[in-house]
Amino acid sequence: MSTEIELSIYVFLLAAFLGLELVHKVSPLLHTPLMSLTNAISAISVVGAILVTGAGESPQFSKILGAIAVVASTINIVSGFLITDRMLKMFRKKEPK
């Protein structure tokens, strides 16, 4: 196993445990926004999609798949963040008038 892979596995493990810790603290009140936020974050795969689409030496077939992937992940990012914010705007503490 190369050091690169070993490092990546450490990074994965630490991030996963950090995720477990952070999410445990999220109030059930916000579980839906949490899910749509993490969903938007998982669209980080846009990074991979850009790299495949923009690479000089990619075959045409890979570029087409890459471009579709950019479209799909952009939809995911845009709708994910916007809907999360739309939901959170509604969570208010107030007394009825």
Partner: peptide
């Protein structure tokens, strides 16, 4: 970066 973001998301979905 993908590993970190993906792991956070995986952990979150798992807990839920």
């Amino acid at each position: 970066l993908l590993i970190i973001a993906g792991a956070l998301n995986a952990a979150s979905g798992f807990i839920l």
